[in-house]
Design a protein around this nucleic acid. Structure first.
Lengths: 148, 148
DNA sequence: TACTATCAGATTGTGCACAATTTAATTGGG
DNA sequence: CCCAATTAAATTGTGCACAATCTGATAGTA
């Protein structure tokens, strides 16, 4: 015997695989819903942040989404190519790039308004259950980030 | 007004973002723990499946991990280059490729045995809480996959 | 036997993630 | 004022994910 059954890491028991797999399953669902709008799920996340608060820098976006410039720079460039956002150097600090919604980018908020409900429906969970799960998962992520 | 506050999709409220973010946070933790072993988290997942049941085809791996050949083919080739697995065409069906652990791949099971506990510790959650969360997240993923 | 359909992997192309490095602007200290 | 340190993005390189396509092997059927 190499290891006892109890200590062997089984795939089904690992919270990380569950999160990884669920995240990909949900993202796949978003992919279908977002395809008509011509944006990917990470691009949609950036747009959501901008819909909450427009004219935000790349690093502020990065803090919000926990993504670095290596991911965001090309992603935002694609959003700009698609005509959804505008990138401008901030005049008081030429290092910072401010990302602003174009009219087309702002208009996408309306067109995507039904998506969250469709996602909720796809989970088959009621709203309270989703909210409870969401807060626990968020707390777990915060713990893991803070544990290093 | 463009939309009511209630209908506006807020990032913090979205289960998908919570899962996506938590998955990345946990994977980052795995990355540190797996670095000494020279494997990535997806590669570790493949090895875990093989530790459970060796000599499995690429498509069976794909079913288990919900990944397609576009992801697995190059990943398994890297595992083979690293000397951790061996790829052999099945003699009774030359289409199928069987993935088998090399001695080095099998040996990694011992060396990685402490990782799950370290991950649990990083979450700060007790085992029952993790298990409860894990089963809910898994069920949610199954629902989402089945809803199309 | 040919002919078609199906199936298993591999390949191609796009878009994330992320580590590491680079470039340019700003800040702080002497 | 000058220069080192810091900061914000961008760039480079690697490795997933995944859609779409391709190649070759197998199965089924007239």
């Amino acid at each position: 015997m190499t290891a006892t059954a109890a200590s062997a890491p089984r795939l089904d028991e690992q919270i990380c695989f569950a999160l990884y797999s669920a995240s990909r399953a949900l993202t796949a669902r978003y992919r279908e819903l977002l395809a008509p709008l011509g944006v990917t799920y990470p691009q949609y996340l950036v747009l959501m942040v901008l819909w909450e608060r427009d004219a935000i820098t790349v690093s502020e976006l990065g803090e919000r989404l926990q993504l670095d410039s290596g991911t965001l720079s090309p992603l935002i460039r694609r959003l700009e190519s698609a005509g959804l956002v505008i990138r401008t150097r901030r005049s008081d600090d030429e290092r910072a790039v401010e990302v602003t919604l174009s009219p087309a980018g702002a208009a996408l908020q309306e067109r995507s308004a039904g998506i969250p409900d469709q996602i909720c429906a796809a989970t088959g969970f009621d709203l309270e259950h989703i909210a409870a799960l969401q807060s626990q998962v968020t707390e777990l992520a915060a713990q893991v980030r803070g544990s290093r």
